Every structure is written in structure tokens, then in C-alpha cells.
Computed example of a mutant assay.
Amino acid sequence: MPSSYSVARFFLPKSLKISLLLFSFCFMFCVHNIAIVNRSFVLHSIVASVARYIRIPTSNEIHQNPAFGVVSFDSFNLDYKINNVTCCVVKKPFLVIFVKSQATNFEQRAAIRRSWGDSQTWKIDAAYEFIVMFIVGLAEKTITDVQRKLVHENSKHHDIVQINVVESFYTLTYKLIGQFKWVTKYCTSAKYFMTTDDDVFVHVQNLVTYLVKFEEKNLYLGCVHSGSPPIRNPSSKYYVPYSVYSGLYFPDYCPGAGYVLSLHSLQLLFAQASSLPLLYIDDVYAGLLANIAKIKPTVSLRFYCEFRVPDDPCFLQYFITSHSHSATELLKMSTVVKSTEQGGYLCREKIFFREVLRFPL
């Protein structure tokens, strides 16, 4: 009986053999020339992707490590220093959008209120009203006068929720749980919840139109990262040691630049939070909670992950989130989006080739 190599050598077309040989050569050349630190990550990424593809299970466990702020806590005892408990009493929103912001980011919040966060920007039926809330932490003690300004800002707009935790990279997940708790306690009239960042432009009209067609009870919607490996390089701020998480790859998750949960999904995730130590990478943590709750993320290419929407009328009328915008750019985007005309067949074709087939245009 001939070996598998002999069979492959006999049956594979010559062109495919050459392609495989060139791919192997290029792969080994690239890996050899990547810096040692990056080479390790590249190889780890390949292993993680293969492991997920062939369905090797990964871990759902986070192990406590106080040095990294990875601790268990009682989510129900998370306190608010500033709160607005009647927002969903005055309105009965279809959608509540929480924007993660730093206490000092006054300009970003002002720009959102004047751009995509202003209901006058969009033509949305009253039955599908939305509200925008901002969640912040405590400013560092070295930054003076911030709290006074924040209280004044909230007295004017009534849209800030402040958790009683000092702002830092390692407390981002507290903001996530703070959002879950607030919606669970004060806004169960909403059908959907979105979390996003204050440098993201959200096309609320496209989002609402998109959500109206969903009837899924356990919705977890956005751009989806699959088979992402933990970064094991100690010099990275996203470093996750094996002692904290031992899995080859993280469960599928939606990047924190913007994703949507149904109210039921949010409540299920919140229920799991008290039993899973807080991993400081908040979007990965949400993915872990969802995986434990057996909720699979639904991918939508209209969420642009950590990227900006292309500056093209076809994509500007189609997207839901666009990342990395300054306050000035958020205001400009609002004007551009409102002036964008609806396209026809060529737009649909362009979007199909770029977003579905991933061809650059």
C-alpha cells in the first residue's frame, strides 16, 4: 500500500505542489525573520487558531492573582458615586447605550452628545427610542478639580454613572460589571444594551434598524474575535500569565469597541460575574462569561472592531461602529454621515466583495 506522501505526490496537481512549496518557504522565511518576541506570539497564534479550528477545548477558568488585580468580588456591592436612577423611568428605551469614558474625557463626552448621541441626528421611530449613558471611574488623586467638574456636567445632562473605583487599565472590568448592574437594577424596560468607547462613532439608526429584525433571546452581537491567544509577553500591558489563564486561546468574544447584548443575555452574564474572578481585559472577560452561560456571539461585519469605517459613501451608509475618533472627528463624522446618500447595486456589490469576501477595494 503506498504511503500518504506517495499518494499526494501522485495525485496533487503540479501547480498545487508548487503553491504549497512556495507557501511553506515564505512561512518559514517570515517566521525566521520576525523578532524573537513577536515570533513566539505568531507561533502561539497559529497553534491557538488550529486548536480552535479542530475544536480542542479551551479553559473557562480565571485564577486569582492580586498583583494583576485579578480578584473575586461581590458584584452586587459595587457602589456608584454618581448615579441617575430615573433615566429609564422618564423614557422606556428600546436600546440603552453605555459609553466607557475616563473621568477627565470631557471633550469626548461633549462631542458624543452633539453627534451620534443626539436623537435629533437620526430618524428613528419613537417606539425604538434609545438613551446614551456614560460610565466613568474616579480620577487619580493627583488630578484635582475633576470631580467637581464631573458633578457639574452630570447636573446639566443627567447621563453619567460613576463607579467608586479609581480609573486604571486594571479596573476596566469593574466598569463592565457596573454597566451590567445598572441595567439590571434600573433599566429592565430596555430590550437591548450596547457597550462602546468614547472614541467610537455609533451609527444608531443603522443599529436600531438592524436590531428590530432580531428575535433571539440570547443575543450577543458584534465583530467577533475567534481563537485569540493570550499574550504571554510580560512587557505587554495585555500580558496574561499562565497562572491567571492557562487556556491555549480565549473563547470567542466581541471587542469592547462596541457590541450588543439582549437584556436576557446581559442578565445571564451578570449572574456569572460573582463566581468568575475579574480578568482585567474586559471584552475577553465578557466572552468568558458568555461562554459559561452558553451564549455564542453573532458576528456582524457592520461592526468595525478596532478600525475606522472606510471613507466611502457605500460604507458610511452601512456601518454600525467606527473606532479611534477624536472629539473633532466625531462631530465631523456626524455631518458626513447625515449627508451620505443611499447607494444602489454598486454599493451592495462593493460591500459584498470587501466585507464578505474580504477583498481590498
Rank of each mutant, 00 (worst) to 15 (best):
P277Q: 15
V161A: 13
M1S: 14
G178N: 08
F106W: 09
F352N: 09
S101I: 12
E341A: 13
K17C: 02
R114K: 15
I34N: 05
L12E: 05
P2R: 12
G343R: 07
K17E: 02
Y253R: 12
L22S: 01
K217A: 06
V166W: 00
F73L: 14
A293M: 04
P255L: 09
I351N: 02
S6T: 13
I177K: 06
V42N: 06
P241D: 05
F180P: 04
V146C: 10
Y285V: 08
G178Y: 03
K185A: 04
R9F: 08
F352S: 08
D74Q: 07
P313I: 00
N38S: 14
P310K: 07
L288P: 01
C88K: 11
C88V: 03
V356M: 11
S40C: 05
T86P: 00
S59I: 03
Y53D: 01
S326D: 10
R348P: 00
L207S: 01
D311Q: 14
Y242L: 12
F11M: 13
H203I: 03
C26Q: 10
K332I: 03
T58G: 08
Y239K: 06
K175A: 06
A273T: 15
L276S: 09
I143Y: 11
R302E: 04
Y249R: 08
T142Y: 03
S226K: 15
S24Y: 10
E341S: 13
F76R: 15
Q179G: 15
V299F: 13
K17M: 03
K294N: 09
F10D: 10
R52H: 09
V337H: 05
I295D: 00
T196K: 02
I320W: 01
F250P: 02
K191C: 02
P57D: 09
V42T: 12
I295W: 00
E140T: 04
L21I: 09
A127S: 14
C26T: 11
P360K: 08
R109S: 05
S15M: 04
D79C: 07
R55M: 05
V99T: 10
Y280W: 14
Y210D: 06
Y186I: 00
E349A: 11
C347A: 13
C223G: 11
V336M: 06
F10I: 03
S235D: 08
D199V: 01
T173C: 05
C26M: 14
Q64T: 12
R348E: 09
T171L: 00
S19D: 12
T188L: 03
L268E: 15
N65I: 00
Q64P: 01
L263D: 05
E355F: 02
P313S: 10
V224C: 05
L301V: 08
F307S: 10
C347D: 13
